[in-house]
Each structure stands twice: as C-alpha cells, then as structure tokens.
C-alpha cells in the first residue's frame, strides 16, 4: 500500500531548506514508516515462524531453557514422518478441500442470483429483503447451532460432509458483498442483453459474472479461510475421524498419545496451514482488488 511520503522533488527555492536537510527528513520519515510496518509484520509472522522452527527441532531442544531461533539438531524428518504416519493428515486436508469447495460452490450458486435480484431487479419487498440480509449478517452461527444440530440428528445426517457444509450454503455476507458489487454494474448493458433476448439467468451467469471475478475471488478467500479454519461446527456434527476437517483433526491428534510431542504437532499444523497460505499468495492481488473495490463503492 502507498504511504504518504514527502514529494520526491522539493520545490526549488522553497522554504529555504537545504537539500541535505530535505534528504535527512525523507530518510527519517522512511525509517519511521517502515519501522512501524516491520514491527506489525513481525508481530503477525512470529507465531508462524515459531511453528516452522518448532516443527524441525528435536523434543529436547523444544523444551530447552535457552531460546534459539535456529535448531542445533534438525529433527524435521522424524517430526514430519511421525505426523504423517500416525495421523491421516492428508485425509484431513482432503476433507478440508471437499468441505471448502462444496460450501463455496453452493454459496456462489445461491448468493450471485440473490445479489443480482437485490441489486438490479425492481420488485415489491426488495428493501425489506435487503434489510433481512443485513440483519442476517448480525447472527453468529452459535445462535442457530442447536436447532440445526437437532434437525440433522432427526434426519440421520450427522457425521456426513453434508452436515458440515449445510449451515453455510446461503451466505448473507456473500449476498451483501455481491449486491454492492453488482449495483455498480452498468444498467445499459443489462438492458442491451434483455433486448438481445437473454433471460435474467443468462444475464447473471453470462454477462454479469464474467465482470465480477475480483469480487468472487475476494469472497472465495474469505469463505475458504473461514471454513478451512472452522472448528466450532465440525466439532458439533463430526465424531468420525475420517470426516474430520483440519482443525478438528489437529484436535483429535493433540488429544491422542502425541499430546506432548510438540515437534510432531507443529509439523502437522504446518502441513495443514500450507495450502491456505499458498492459495492466498496466488489470489493475493485479486483479493486486495476486491476489498478496495467494495470499500470505495
């Protein structure tokens, strides 16, 4: 992000400041600004760095009194091997992929037409519906958790992928985000599409969505991060280890005999965090575009 720095071209004959003084001032500003940014980055990155280092240390070194950033003996093979052998880590990761992809797909299928209707179609009750969407944003998952659980238990669907995904199929946040995005879509193009004979569904999927990729990418990152990391809901509906999502799997893993093997634990955590970090790095530019775009409008 741009930070506001003094102009690189000091005005000639300005306020009598010498070129050296101007340079010093600029250097000081740069130093302070970057100092703050670096401090923030260190604060956020330190837990990750610690996790990575711990995952390659030997148990003795982890519990050693003196703190070191770099291990004396590398124990990576043992730690990662142990984690991968004892725990179905890849299975957890695969579960995470299935759940996140399923949730995201249905969320997009539901939220995009809803958002289009709220943004571009005129019908009675539109304002009231949008108000309901906004109110929906205020309800945390903990509130409907009990009735959802009872309902799933009644139909015998506990311990299924469907049970993990179902509460998140309709995302009010997605509807809100896409509605804001679609509102800025030019009406004239939609009118032209209607005159060309397209149905409203075709307009949504063939005309509007191709221009909405930044918003879709931004929302996808939100959705995937939230559901990859979600522990609360899988913990309620899943007791079968084979269906565990990454955080739930980590919890099962920590509970078992490996509870105090921090090297192996952090190795497992590294394996399970890596896909998200990689995904974010790939979608980073789109993600930032999406955020700034919806922030301005």
């Amino acid at each position: 992000m741009d930070t506001h720095l003094p102009s690189p071209h000091p005005s000639p004959g300005g306020r009598g400041r010498s070129p050296v003084g101007t340079l010093a001032r600029r250097a000081a500003t740069l130093f302070v600004v970057h100092g703050i940014l670096i401090a923030g980055a260190v604060f956020i990155l330190l837990p990750f760095v610690w996790m990575l280092i711990t995952s390659i240390k030997s148990p003795a070194e982890i519990f050693a009194v003196d703190f070191s950033l770099w291990p004396k003996h590398f124990n990576a093979v043992e730690n990662y091997g142990f984690a991968l052998q004892k725990v179905p880590l890849l299975r957890f990761a695969a579960n995470g992929v299935i759940v996140c992809a399923g949730i995201l797909l249905i969320q997009l299928l539901v939220a995009i037409p809803c958002a289009y209707a709220l943004a571009k179609l005129r019908f009675p009750g539109r304002t009231a519906l949008f108000a309901l969407v906004l109110m929906g944003l205020c309800i945390p998952i903990q509130v409907p958790a009990l009735p959802l659980y009872m309902g799933l238990a009644q139909v015998g669907l506990l311990n299924t992928y469907f049970a993990i995904m179902m509460p998140f199929f309709s995302s009010v946040f997605a509807i809100f985000l896409f509605r804001q995005f679609f509102r800025s879509y030019p009406d004239e193009i939609i009118h032209a599409a209607r005159l060309d004979g397209m149905s409203e569904f075709e307009i949504v999927w063939l005309i509007v969505v191709p221009s909405a990729w930044p918003a879709i990418a931004a929302f996808s990152v939100f959705s995937i991060v939230a559901h990859w990391n979600d522990l609360y809901w899988p913990l309620i509906v899943i007791s079968d280890t084979h269906l565990a999502t990454p955080p739930l799997g980590m919890m099962f893993f920590a509970d078992a005999e490996t509870g105090s093997n921090y090297g192996a634990l952090t190795a497992a955590a590294t394996v399970l965090t890596a896909p998200l970090v990689v995904a974010f790095l790939i979608a980073r530019r789109r993600f930032i575009e999406g955020i700034t775009m919806t922030g301005i409008k």
Partner: peptide
C-alpha cells in the same frame, strides 16, 4: 423487450465487455 422487434443503441454503447 426482445419480442417487440426493436433494437436499441445506448449512450454508453453497452457492449458486452468480455
């Protein structure tokens, strides 16, 4: 609209951008 057999040209041209 499309059943009325009229065609329209818009101020912004309204071409499909993609």
């Amino acid at each position: 609209p499309h059943e009325r057999q009229v065609a329209m040209v818009f101020q912004s041209y309204a071409l499909y951008p993609h």
